[in-house]
Design a protein around this nucleic acid. Sequence first.
DNA 1: TAATTAAGTCAATATGGCTGACCTTAATTC
DNA 2: GAATTAAGGTCAGCCATATTGACTTAATTA
Lengths: 168, 168
Amino acid sequence: MADLNSSIDPQFLREEDLRQGIELLFYAYRDFTGEPDAILDKHDLGRAHHRVIYFVGRNPGITVTELLEILRITKQSLSRVLGHLLEQDFINQRADPADRRRKQLTLSEKGKALEHALTSTQMDRFARAYREAGAEAVEGFRRVLIGIVEPEDRPRVRPATVRTSNRR
Amino acid sequence: MADLNSSIDPQFLREEDLRQGIELLFYAYRDFTGEPDAILDKHDLGRAHHRVIYFVGRNPGITVTELLEILRITKQSLSRVLGHLLEQDFINQRADPADRRRKQLTLSEKGKALEHALTSTQMDRFARAYREAGAEAVEGFRRVLIGIVEPEDRPRVRPATVRTSNRR
DNA sequence: TAATTAAGTCAATATGGCTGACCTTAATTC
DNA sequence: GAATTAAGGTCAGCCATATTGACTTAATTA
C-alpha cells in the first residue's frame, strides 16, 4: 500500500490515527459484548445465541438463509444454535405460506423478553455514549462505520433523525 | 431502563437509532476482521494470534500480564497462542533486566512483516472510510467509540491531528 | 525468611466455528 | 408427469479458542 504518512495526506490518515481507530473498534466491541455475555451465561446461552435472537427480533419472519447471510456462518453452525433456541422456546418457526420450504422465524414472548434484557444493556451503553458525544458526533460515527462495512451490507435507510448538519 | 422514546429525548436516542448503531458496530467488526482472517489462514494462524501480534507490535516490550489485561482472556488461553508464536519466531521474549520475572515481548522481523500485512488491510479500510467521511466525521466517530469503551480503557492521548473543528 | 508476584503448566470442559455427506420436501423446469 | 433444483435439516467429526482449577518455579519485596 502507499505510504500512509505521505505529506499530501490529511493528518487524520496518518498511521497513528488509523491505529487508534483500529484499537477503538476492538475495545468498543469487546466492552459492548461484555454485559450481554453475563446475562447469557445465566441462561446457559452464548454469544451466538444472542446474535440469532437479536436478528430474529429485528427481522420477524426472517428465514434461515437470510439469517446466514447476515451472520456469515455456515448452515451447520447456525443449526446447532438455532435448534437449541427452538427447543427452549425462545424462537418459533412456521412455514412460509407462499413457499412452504421456507421457515419463518419469530421470537416467542420468552424470546422477546430475553432479547429486550440483552439489547437494553447495549442500548443503554450507546445512549450514554451518544448523549455525551452529541448529535453531530453521532452523525460522524455513523458515516465512518458505514464506510467500514462492506458496501452490500450498508444500511439502506438514512434515518431522518440524524439530519443535523447541512452537508451535501 | 427509562422509556427510550420519551418525547424529551433527542431524536438520535430513539430506539431505532440505537439499534442502528448496534448493528453498524456488529457489521463493521465482522467486516474489519474478514481480510486479516484470510491472511492468517495461509499461515495456519487464527484471530487470537492476530490480536497478540497486533498488541505486541504496538507495545514493544509488553509483558504477559499487561497483554492479558488488554485482551481480557486467561493466562492459559494466551499461553497456547503465544507459545505458538514464540515457536514460530514471530515473537521474541527477553527477561526484563529490572525484574527478571517479567518477560518482555517484541516482534521479530518476521513478526513485524506479518503484523504489517495484517494491519495494513485494516488501515486501508479505515483510511478509505475516514477519507470518505471527512475529518469532522472522524472526530465524531472517535468521540462516540470512546464513550462506548469502558472508562478505564479509554485512550489517554488526544491526538492533535483531529482538532479540525473549534468545538469546546 | 516469608509472602507475593509473574509466568508457565497440566488437565478437563465448553462454545462456536468448520467440512463433508446425506436426506427430505417442495418448487420449478423440461 | 418426471427430472432437476432449492431450501432446509441432520449426523459425524474436527479444530480453535475460550473457560476453571490446581499446581510449580523463579524472582522480588516486605
